[in-house]
């Protein structure tokens, strides 16, 4: 894969390479954050100095279906020793799927000093770089986040209903079987927590992982991404786009790609996603 700066991204500085991370392991202004789908990965070994942010334990409200609020975010940042000047660098498993999810939640609180390590855990491991089981402890910081801003990069069901009615672009990033509704109707299998299968009418099907190179988890070049999202799917950088999946985790990866790598101006992640839509009464569904 070519160097990040040569791939034509709209905001190349949002990505850092594994080499860059290796050179900054002892930089006190950098906090590495590992965020995985598989919670056993971090304790099995992680990049030296990295802390773990778990989307269930750390990023979600423990009672309501929602993300943590300002107070919770302040506590989390204090716990992992981050100030507003700290550059946080996310990485994780599954082509950085959960890393971009954590990145997205951090942007709800406007923590701008945030980057993603291209290739994530997979690339770091493939390169034979050091992993450790030592869990670091950092002095607690004082962090005063703004109130969570749900207006810019997050979409709610009523907004999606209007968006769909206005024929604005929606991107369904789930697997083709989920998009078609086939998967939730397979005999002998539970309904994956939803009562209806299919997709939001008009939504384009672009499985999230198409944006990544499967061999090393790096992001595809801007030209390759444009070929998928712009030429193939007809999306335009000035479009008002909403991405969704099952609970908003995979779609945060697509949100990241469209926003930072292709420079789309207005992309929102519908985190209610199919587990809300597929259980809602009377909403339009297409199969």
């Amino acid at each position: 894969m070519t160097a990040i700066a040569e791939r034509g991204y709209a905001t190349p500085e949002v990505l850092v390479s594994t080499d860059w991370v290796a050179e900054h392991l002892n930089d006190p202004n950098i906090r590495l954050i590992e965020s995985n789908e598989d919670t056993l990965l971090y304790p099995s070994g992680h990049i030296p100095g990295a802390v773990q942010v778990d989307w269930v334990a750390d990023l979600n409200d423990p009672v309501r279906r929602d993300y943590l609020g300002k107070e919770g975010f302040d506590k989390l940042m204090s716990k992992i020793g981050v100030t507003k000047d700290t550059t946080v660098v996310f990485y994780g498993d599954k082509n950085n799927w959960w890393a971009t999810y954590a990145f997205w939640v951090f942007q709800l609180f406007d923590h701008k000093n945030a980057k993603v390590m291209d290739g994530g855990r997979l690339k770091w491991e493939q390169e034979g770089r050091t992993l450790t089981r030592d869990v670091p402890a950092y002095p607690a910081t004082h962090y005063d986040a703004p109130r969570r801003d749900d207006t810019k990069i997050r979409a709610f069901k009523e907004q999606v209903l209007k968006h769909q009615a206005d024929n604005k672009p929606l991107v369904d990033v789930r697997s083709p079987a989920e998009y078609s509704g086939e998967k939730t109707h397979m005999p002998e299998y539970p309904q994956e927590g939803v009562l209806r299968g299919g997709h939001i009418p008009g939504a384009r099907s672009v499985p999230w992982a198409r944006a990544a190179n499967p061999e090393d988890g790096t992001f595809k070049s801007a030209d390759e991404l444009k070929a998928i999202y712009e030429q193939e799917q007809g999306l335009k950088p000035k479009d008002d786009v909403i991405a969704y999946c099952r609970i908003g985790e995979r779609s945060s990866h697509t949100w990241f790609v469209l926003t930072y790598l292709l420079g789309f101006e207005k992309v929102r992640n519908y985190d209610g996603s199919w587990t809300e839509w597929g259980n809602s009464v009377g909403v339009p569904i297409e199969k």
């Binding site: 789908e37 919670t39 269930v56 334990a57 002998e188 927590g193 099952r246 609970i247 985790e249």
Partner: peptide, 20 residues
Amino acid sequence: KDLSMGKGQGLMGMLDHVTS
């Protein structure tokens, strides 16, 4: 109890194959 939905579904799917 804090198993993610996707992970839980996957592990349940493995068990389904065995019990089936």
